[in-house]
């Protein structure tokens, strides 16, 4: 957030974004105030007006800054501070939280569970993003065609997005049940499997099942954004391309994909950030089990804080997740800036 971009009247005539020079040119709303614009030597009156303008610029910013500080800054700072403290249930009543330095980080990182959760987080994220994106893109391209019920079908596909996650996970938990689950019944009726597949209770299948459910939940997001991106591509490009023989796959490869790239990078990076922190779906489906095979950093952090009441360790693990997300957030900012430039 910068002063020069938020308020047009503060852009200096020479275009250099210098806060010291802000306000040199009167804004359009204040053109009638009588002062001669472009004076080389600032008069005292002029200086006081400049000061006042700067004050107003700040006043416009204050609500946003206060909001950010209160609802984003404070929790983040608090979480960082907490991760260096021995923060227990007693802290809530007494307010005492002894400083323990890096001890929480050492405990969390040296735990045998950390490598498992880190690997699971990576597999979960990569698997989910890959599935969501590929299916989302395929559906987005499919819905580009004009056919009856297109609109209704497309809005039905948004359903997973609209359902509360705890409801989706409860329903999927039932669908994926080994003995009486709908999926196994279906597969059994078609003779694909003989015995119930332990989707959620086998250490080798549980993560795949959880990723599958998360893909189902993520498709609407990918579909919507990518569909929007596809709508932006001018039809003329395809018409011109088809004259040169670029149809079907070639049209996708040489027209759709390059034109969609900026949207794709935004979708992917946002998807990664959203997927890294997924908690409720996993808790609802498997609670991190069986035998920690679906335990991710997010679920482990939750368990540490809210089941074992080790708030310091939970915060430390949470911060590690924040740092991982931050890397992708920076990537997102760069990607979206490029998207604007293009």
């Amino acid at each position: 957030m910068s002063l020069t971009t938020d308020l047009p009247q503060s852009t200096p005539p020479n275009g250099k974004p210098g806060p010291g020079k802000a306000g040199a040119k009167p804004g359009p709303g204040r053109a009638g105030s009588g002062d001669g614009a472009g004076d080389a030597v600032p008069s005292p009156r002029r200086r006081s007006r400049q000061r006042r303008e700067r004050l107003f610029q700040w006043l416009f910013l204050v609500p946003a800054v206060v909001y950010m500080a209160l609802f984003f800054g404070y929790p983040v700072v608090k979480n960082v501070v907490m991760s260096f403290q021995d923060y227990t249930t007693a802290t809530f009543f007494t307010g005492e939280a002894p400083w323990v330095g890096l001890a929480n980080y050492v405990t969390v990182l040296s735990s045998s569970l950390f490598s498992t959760s880190l690997l699971n987080t990576a597999l979960f994220t990569v698997g989910s993003i890959l599935g969501q994106f590929v299916i989302g893109l395929a559906l987005a391209i499919f819905f580009q065609r004009k056919f009856p019920l297109n609109g209704i079908l497309r809005s039905l596909l948004l359903l997973p997005w609209l359902l509360p996650l705890i409801v989706s996970s409860a329903v999927w938990r039932w669908i994926l049940d080994k003995d009486s689950g709908a999926l196994n019944r279906f597969l059994g009726d078609f003779g694909i499997v003989d015995t119930g597949v332990p989707w959620l209770t086998s250490t080798s299948l549980a993560l795949i099942a959880v990723v599958g459910v998360n893909i189902w939940i993520g498709i609407p997001f990918n579909l919507t954004i990518l569909y929007g991106g596809l709508q932006e591509i001018p039809d003329e490009l395809y018409e011109a391309g088809s004259l040169d023989g670029a149809t079907g796959w070639k049209a996708f490869r040489h027209i759709t994909w390059p034109m969609l790239r900026p949207v794709v990078s935004v979708v992917l990076v946002l998807g990664v950030v959203y997927t890294l922190k997924v908690l409720d779906i996993i808790l609802g489906l498997t609670n991190g089990g069986p035998a920690n095979s679906t335990q991710t950093i997010a679920t482990q952090s939750y368990a540490l804080s809210f089941q074992e009441f080790k708030f310091g360790e939970g915060a430390a693990l949470g911060n590690i997740l924040v740092i991982i997300s931050l890397v992708f957030a920076v990537l997102y900012l760069r990607a979206s800036r490029r998207a604007v430039d293009e």
Binding site: D177, K178, D179, P198, L200, T201, S202, T286, G289, P290
Partner: peptide
């Protein structure tokens, strides 16, 4: 097999 492995969940 006297208890379903679904007991895990």
């Amino acid at each position: 097999g006297s208890v379903s492995s679904s007991a895990l969940n």
